[in-house]
Write a protein that binds this DNA or RNA. Structure first.
Lengths: 349, 349
DNA sequence: ACCCGATCTGACAACGTTGTCCAGGCTCTA
DNA sequence: TAGAGCCTGGACAACGTTGTCAGATCGGGT
């Protein structure tokens, strides 16, 4: 009795604002419940005349099938979950879009959430999605232990990890070749004469960050260049830290003549720092950036194909759901070096 | 009998891969169904000892509450739908993120879909979301007739339109001040001495595009400058068309000395065209762009706050759901002109 | 006129959860 | 020690849909 106001909306609380049900439609059309169900789902075995009557009642009442109930009965929700780090990041937009496109092609809806790079929030989100009984999950892991997913996997929730591998769980993974990409990018700088090269990346617990650092080290080692601790900086990618890191590398005792940046957020900040810097410091960034070719100099990048990552993952997911692809696999997509100028600058004297 | 292979997953089809239910948990713990429900939902009235036994059974079986069933019973799904144009567009990423953030604060999940600017697909998506019984909808309209939503609105589905108003339906709308923003931007160009100014925008049936054109015309009229048809080009925003439009304006009989672009996609293409162009053509764009200040010249823009749009809309939505805000409103957020160089170039001789 | 089969229709149970309501056991007091 | 009152636990129905199955209706052939 507490909530009597509200002029028209949601009067009786429980019944979704009193939406008409198949029962209501059946009553109005003077037919049985199942006949309405048949019409709604286009099943055969209904006289045109009956169908017309039912359709009329549906339109008159504004009936819309309740998919929640349907799902409960049928067992498949025709929806998949996507957990990523931050939808506002330009890297995840295309990825998300690609996943959605594949889902749509399979008649599924996409539910998504951002983990904000917080493992706890990732778990919370993933479990909420499982409680909704999504058919499958595409997860860009924030945490490194996914054992909490075991009951779900066992229960048949299709799962694909993207961009970073899962921790302690045997599941599909779709990755970019971070190690190879970073190695190539750094080798590119070395080929243009640089020997004092800096690396600024994300927190080392993030797999891609660690791999890219590994690629950096490998390239340096291949070229026989000893690496100094002061040339490497890993940590959160907020502008302040990155800016400080870059400035230290540029002005320290052993100043770098080139920088390799570990992802697009870092790159953007470093571009800003370099714009204020007198010498022509070379730069190669991991991840492509819109308008990169219009900067002066154009930005040389190691590009990964976010859309391809998403598409591959989603297709893999529906492959699992269709009963193929029972054996978890690790798929690594190649990266591509795009030279536009900033990575071809010679070392400053 | 057709699908017998599949080693472990989804054996009996219907029951979500044989997930344990409260009944199973109750049986294992040796208690009643409702007691399990009480434990799962943290309701009072359960002995610690009993609770321990139930919790043990839950862990052992890997039970997870089925929210589909819960929703069916309770009437609220704690999820909202977001229909936008293209997640990969950098304008919608932050907007989507803001909506998600508010939803999260209200304990709701976000289901989203892209309409790809296709009215039919928008309707299809919206209705699919309604069939899921989302509690509310945030819609960036692609179409201009939303009467199909009437039964849903009447049934109490909270709805807020963003970025563009709805057609033939009385509902909340949250907009940027497209007219004022465009007028200010064009006035800015006029103030810097330009008289022959071009406008390139999206398809005229899109409300924001029409409003921005109106702003352009108003600014020109205020300054007493007659507008030529050849200075205005509206249509799809794919690079080819925009490029052609820009080139025609720049080389036609009455070449423009400045261009105002109607959204970020157009702006990006026009920047590319101007980069190839010898004369210093001035440019002001609607929507801000990352790295805009690092271009030469820096890009002057009329910025709108995508995150604020999303946040405002979502808060409005939950306001509706909480029973306040029964009267639909139209909220217009201001834009902000950011001068960075490209809009302050003097007219070429 | 009667029966058979084909076609159409509807009653009923089930999906997994939660709200209602009642039963039984306990404690506390008179 | 009996009765009142509280606390815990469980049986049952309901949410809106679909699958099963059996009943009703109709046409045509004998």
């Amino acid at each position: 009795m507490t909530d009597m106001a509200r002029p028209r909306h949601r009067s009786s609380g429980n019944r979704y604002g009193n939406r008409p049900t198949m029962k209501d439609v059946a009553a109005r059309a003077g037919v049985g419940l199942k006949t309405v169900s048949r019409v709604v789902n286009g099943e055969p075995g209904v006289t045109p005349e009956t169908e017309r009557r039912v359709q009329e009642a549906i339109d008159a009442l504004g009936f819309r099938r309740n998919d929640s109930a349907r799902v409960l009965r049928k067992g498949r929700t025709a929806s998949i979950g996507l957990v990523l780090e931050d939808l506002a990041d330009p890297f995840y937009g295309p990825l998300s879009r690609a996943v959605e496109e594949v889902a749509r092609a399979h008649g599924a809806l996409l539910i998504n959430g951002s983990s904000a790079e917080d493992p706890e929030r990732e778990q919370e989100l993933v479990l909420a999605l499982c409680a909704r009984r999504v058919d499958g999950l595409v997860v860009i892991p924030a945490g490194d232990d996914h054992r909490y997913l075991e009951p779900e996997l066992k229960a048949g929730v299709a799962t694909v990890f993207v961009d970073r591998p899962a921790g302690h769980v045997d599941a599909d993974v779709v990755l970019s070749d971070s190690f190879g990409g970073a190695r190539d990018g750094v080798a590119h700088l070395i080929a243009h004469g640089h020997r004092r090269i800096g690396f600024i990346g994300d927190m080392p617990r993030i797999h891609t960050a660690a791999e890219r650092l590994r690629g950096y080290r490998a390239a340096m080692e291949d070229a026989g260049i000893p690496v100094r601790e002061s040339w490497m900086s890993l940590g959160v990618t907020d502008p302040e830290r990155v800016r400080r890191a870059a400035e230290e590398m540029l002005t320290g005792p052993d100043p770098v003549t080139a920088i390799f940046t570990g992802n697009n957020r870092v790159t953007v900040t470093v571009i800003r720092v370099l714009a204020e810097h007198p010498h022509g410091v070379a730069l190669v960034g991991f991840d492509d950036i819109e308008l990169a070719e219009l900067l002066r100099p154009g930005l040389t990048v190691v590009a990964q194909d976010a859309a391809a990552l998403g598409r591959t993952a989603a297709e893999r997911l529906f492959g699992q759901l269709d009963g193929d692809l029972l054996v978890p696999e690790r798929i690594e997509l190649p990266t591509r070096l795009i030279a536009r100028g900033s990575g071809e600058l010679p070392p400053a004297p």
